[in-house]
Design a protein around this nucleic acid. Structure first.
Lengths: 115, 115
DNA sequence: TTACCATATAAGCATATTCTTATGTAGGTG
DNA sequence: CACCTACATAAGAATATGCTTATATGGTAA
């Protein structure tokens, strides 16, 4: 049985501030369903690689997102064992899913896969 | 039957940025259940009156919160007809309620009422 | 009217945020 | 080894944010 985690208002505010950026919010929404590596986000957002890297670092520093190396790539995904994981999932549940963006990448042959 | 409002990710990010501040998030959580006037928030947060007023202005400018004059006071409350009202309620649903703060005010005789 | 109370607005300042460009690091491959 | 690819980090600049103090506004009361 899953214990409901008590979320204090200051912690929540910090998480919402982190999500209160279009780029990071889109990242989180995508990562909720799919692992992604940095270069995919660079292609998706048409931002420079350092800018993407810095957003991902903020997400990783919060613990909401974790990374794993696979070959030469670093894949990011939501960290399901973060105390506020459920809160984040709830916040993003109403957002339109961003699958079309990934499909676009796929059709351009830019989707990375390690299978 | 209530139409579900489609929430685009940029709008959501802007709302989350607005809520990503401890003071404003607490305000919204309180306003979700109770009307409050500025001077009550000043007492609650132990902030200067202009600081409180500026936070409320941001909330009002977004349309999430509305005001109504009653006598010499301006009362604020959540605006239930805002397109993202349901989203906001969902975001704050997990937060601890802030009733104890209002009760504290009450016991100090600082709660304003217009009944 | 004058004075007071609740609130809003303006201006200035310190700090935070987010980008940019340049450079560092680490794994994979010839 | 040298070189490439993927990514991280550093430093700097522009802008945004959140406070402060001072002042304006608008309703109420004497």
């Amino acid at each position: 049985m899953q214990m409901k985690h008590e979320l204090d208002i200051e912690t929540a505010a910090n998480i919402l501030k982190l999500l209160g950026d279009k780029t990071r919010l889109t990242m989180i929404k995508i990562l909720a369903d799919h692992e992604c590596c940095v270069c995919e986000f660079v292609a998706l957002f048409q931002m420079t690689q350092p800018a993407v890297s810095q957003h991902l670092r903020k997400l990783k520093d919060s613990g909401l997102v974790k990374e794993s190396r696979k070959g030469q790539w670093v894949f990011y995904s939501l960290n399901p064992s973060h105390p506020s994981h459920a809160f984040v999932r709830n916040v993003i549940s109403d957002l339109p899913n961003q699958l079309s963006k990934l499909e676009e990448l796929e059709s351009q042959g830019k989707r990375i896969s390690c299978d």
